[in-house]
């Protein structure tokens, strides 16, 4: 029962109260870079969710059974980034062979996920918070869902920004950042959920 409550708390936190984008500043680069259209934003969000879940699982195993056992905790950063890079490469090859339609839909976003700090971030946070295997995977997946929610909402606002009238010097990133800032303000309303 305690485990279920813990998982529920992790889910609420990762999707709303401690959203990776709006309160932890992880994964801002793809968030700003791939949010010009809703379709691509959805593709990126789904891909990131998948990789975050898988990376959490694999890195937990690597950390528990290789690094900790042999006293190599100081190699965590190097080991994790290698695991993530090879995982992304592997997923790319797998999708290309077995699900070509999904592969072409995700296109160039797949390799970009390697340098998404949300993925490395979630893995490091799992270690820092001492999560067990199930909590780690749930945190990875729900963190990804939070990213998906944020990027889709943001992309739909950005599509409408084209018609907005604002000073020329704010074109591009500045107006996007201000929009994201206002969204972060809205997401702060969820911080009351932290009591869980």
């Amino acid at each position: 029962m305690d485990q279920i409550f813990e998982l529920l708390a992790i889910t609420l936190g990762a999707v709303l109260a401690n959203n990776f984008i709006f309160s932890q500043f992880l994964g801002i680069c793809p968030f700003l870079g791939v949010s010009k259209k809703i379709d691509t934003a959805v593709g990126m969000g789904v891909a990131v969710t998948f990789v975050m879940g898988l990376a959490s699982a694999v890195c937990y195993v690597v950390n528990e059974f290789v690094l900790t056992r042999f006293g190599l905790e100081y190699m965590q950063t190097v080991a994790f980034i290698l695991v993530i890079a090879s995982l992304v490469q592997f997923i790319e090859m797998f999708l290309q062979k077995s699900m070509p339609s999904l592969y072409t839909a995700l296109g160039v976003y797949l390799p970009l996920i390697t340098t998404n700090c949300a993925v490395l971030g979630v893995v490091l946070l799992n270690v820092q918070n001492n999560y067990n295997f199930i909590s780690s995977v749930v945190y990875g997946i729900t963190g990804g869902l939070g990213f998906l929610l944020a990027i889709v909402l943001f992309a739909s606002i950005r599509e409408r920004l084209v018609f907005a009238d604002y000073p020329k010097n704010w074109d591009g990133f500045p107006i996007a950042l201000v929009t994201a800032g206002l969204m972060a303000l809205a997401f702060m309303g969820f911080s009351g959920l932290k009591v869980w």
Binding site: S23, N169, V178
Partner: peptide, 22 residues
């Protein structure tokens, strides 16, 4: 000092830079 401030301050700085460069 909250996340909101980070977005707003950076947005303003980039806008200032674009203005200066143009």
């Amino acid at each position: 000092t909250l996340p909101v401030g980070g977005f707003l301050v950076l947005g303003t700085l980039i806008a200032t830079m674009q203005w200066a460069l143009s």
